[in-house]
Nucleic acid binder design. Structure first.
Length: 618
DNA sequence: CTTCTCACG
DNA sequence: ACGTACGTGAGAAGT
């Protein structure tokens, strides 16, 4: 056995690395003791990389620990080590893992320990941390990573184990990408840091539990978030089928398009179409007037500016109001093709598993409002104006894609939370909310433009925007926006009152407000108006969360693929599509303080893209 | 590392 | 006193 001694918060700790079968017997004794105690055992894994499902991904170490002792089991070193880890991962009654979904997916994939069996025995310290303060460091929070949490709550000198290992990788002539696979299993820093992670996790849970209770956070949120995390991890494990032939063809096609238009741009002197400065300089030299500036003071040459110069609206339709600038046209087209290729198509190929599926990372509790996020690939942000990218993702063999989304959920949540009387009446009567508002504000002869403005003002209310933004977004004349805004406030006076009340509550409570589901929601001192959005977005997230748990209870988890804020995407057997779509719809339909939350499912073909414009026959 | 840009809800 | 669009993930350029 190799033992590494260290100090955390002034106390000596030990990292014990098993190197022989005798060592494993000592580990066995320790683990048996822990299993009989009430204390959870901290568990962590070290692997070859973050893409758990990618080809060639391996599990290298499994670590166990309490506050003072860590055991590093080099499972890659041989069968006895592997068996010892499995034995206790199966038997330990209580475990704590920081970001459980990651490690439990690793154990599911590599050790055959199903998520459904391990997750119920695990407390995820990241979840507790996010409930205490959901903000990332860049938003003024502690952050929810093991390193910032340890530095804040346990020991300011706790090493950044990831950063420290990056240095080790460099000294071994390895990179961040190759280091995790290439670092020797017995590298002392690797062993020490692997052990420290469980020591810190064990200590962290104790501190966070105490703080959680001291802050009086609603206890029910803990099992709720763990359940949601399990369902999201199951979605990640399932993943989605890639249309490999199409993806490769699309990759080549986008590359051709990007290069074709880049060549045209180069004829106008733009060597790099992604350099905004070069593009702006050339356009100015061509005699175009570029008046807008970015926040940093540079000349703005974004999509909106370029499309206008190319005589197109934001939907790329010809306007026929000017002679299209050929450089602007070439730059927007080349940029779009290049971006769609690198951000989407190539990530599909990179993250694909051996069976042609992609398994995006689903983070159930990512945003400061609790909203979920998805990355690698970012399947919540695929272009929706066109089926081009979404066509690449398919329902399972013999299945079709179902998408079910809430109808104007944020407006309904706002009506419920702020108790907006006339909004609730309209929704209760089954009216279209924006029609209703337009009629109240502009009278029964309201036009399409009036409805658009009413909708824009609704968004303005939900986001905390003002007249100028609403004017920019809707294109309506400023005077009309002002008139409509004040009429809106007269019709729905409860919104302003709720905003003022929530801001007061936050002020008198350390700039933190409790959401309707009991979530702690910190506000930024200099933008307290955002409280309306936070309360609405956060509650809407929990409306989706509740719906997902209802689906789980109804046995629908196996069909779920993606949560997209106000929508779920599912893969269902073609023969039962109607029934299952209805079942999903039913789970998403609910009542929030007397406001009906409605959901509508759409049944597509096998490609997800079949639910979007311009998808060829499928 | 920061800024800009752009994709989504 | 008044008004402020919200939340993400991602690539590329430029410092």
């Amino acid at each position: 056995m190799r033992v590494h001694e260290y100090r955390i918060a002034g106390e000596p700790v030990e990292v014990r690395v098993c190197t022989s079968e005798d060592d494993l017997e000592l580990f066995d004794v320790w683990a048996r003791d822990m299993a009989n105690s009430r204390e959870p055992v901290a568990v962590d894994t070290e692997t070859t990389g973050l893409d758990v499902f990618s080809v060639g991904h391996r599990l290298r170490l499994v670590q166990f620990g309490d506050d003072h002792t860590a055991w590093v089991i080099p499972v890659e070193a041989g069968r006895p080590f592997w068996q010892a880890a499995i034995k206790w991962l199966t038997r330990l009654p209580r475990m704590v893992v920081h970001n459980a979904a990651y490690d439990l997916l690793v154990l599911d994939r590599h050790m055959g320990l199903p998520l459904e069996e391990t997750f119920p025995r695990v407390t995820d310290s990241k979840i507790i941390a996010a409930l205490i303060d959901p903000r990332q460091p860049q938003d003024g929070g502690v952050g929810t990573g093991l390193k910032p949490l340890s530095a804040y709550w346990i020991d300011p000198n706790a090493p950044d184990t990831q950063e420290g290992l990056t240095a080790v990788f460099r000294s071994l002539k390895l990179t961040k990408a190759t280091g995790w696979a290439g670092v020797p299993l017995d590298n002392p820093t690797y062993e020490l840091y692997a052990g420290l992670d469980v020591l810190l996790t064990s200590r962290l849970l104790k501190v966070l539990r105490r703080v959680f209770v001291e802050l009086g956070i609603r206890p029910a949120l803990v099992p709720y978030e763990h359940q949601l995390a399990l369902v999201c991890a199951i979605m990640q494990r399932a993943g989605m089928v890639l249309d490999e032939d199409y993806v490769r063809q699309l990759d080549a096609e986008l590359e051709r398009e990007a290069e074709h238009f880049a060549r045209i741009a180069s004829r106008f002197g733009v060597e790099n179409i992604n350099s905004t400065r070069q593009v702006a300089d050339c356009l100015l030299a061509m005699g175009e007037a570029l008046t807008e500036r970015t926040a940093g003071g540079a000349i703005k040459a974004d999509k909106a500016v370029l499309l206008a110069l190319a005589d197109m609206d934001l939907q790329w339709n010809r306007l026929d109001i000017r002679r299209p600038n050929p450089l602007a046209n070439a730059v927007v087209r080349s940029k779009r093709a290049g971006k769609w290729r690198s951000a989407y198509v190539q990530t599909f190929i990179e993250t694909m598993d051996a069976n042609g599926r992609v398994h995006p990372n689903v983070n159930p509790l990512q945003a400061r409002t609790g909203r979920m996020s998805i990355n690698r690939p970012a399947l919540q942000t695929l272009p929706s104006s066109d089926a081009m990218i979404r066509r690449a993702l398919l329902a399972d063999e013999g299945h079709v894609t179902v998408s079910c989304d809430f109808a104007a959920v944020e407006m309904r949540v706002l009506a419920a939370l702020a108790d907006v009387r006339r909004m609730k009446e309209a929704l209760h009567a089954g009216r279209d909310l924006h029609d209703f508002t337009a009629e109240l504000v502009f009278g029964p002869d309201f036009t399409k433009a009036h409805r658009k403005l009413a909708k824009g003002i609704g968004f303005g209310k939900v986001y905390g925007g003002g007249a100028a933004t609403i004017q920019r977004q809707t294109g309506a004349p400023m005077e009309q926006v002002r008139v409509a805004l004040s009429a809106y406030d007269r019709v729905y006076p409860e919104i302003k009152r709720a905003s003022a009340r929530w801001q007061r509550e936050a002020m008198s409570n350390g700039m933190v407000i409790e959401t309707v589901t009991g979530r702690r929601q910190p506000l930024d001192r200099d933008r307290t108006y955002a409280v309306v959005n936070y309360m609405v977005q956060s509650a809407a997230r929990d409306v989706l969360g509740q719906a997902i748990l209802t689906m789980h209870e109804q046995g629908l988890t196996q069909y779920l693929r993606l949560p997209i804020h106000d929508e779920v995407v599912a893969s269902v057997p073609a023969g039962e599509a109607k029934e299952l779509a209805k079942a999903i719809e039913d789970c998403m339909t609910m009542d929030l303080f007397g406001v009906h939350i409605a959901a509508e499912a759409e049944i597509g073909g096998r490609p997800w893209g079949s639910l979007y414009p311009n998808c060829p026959a499928y």
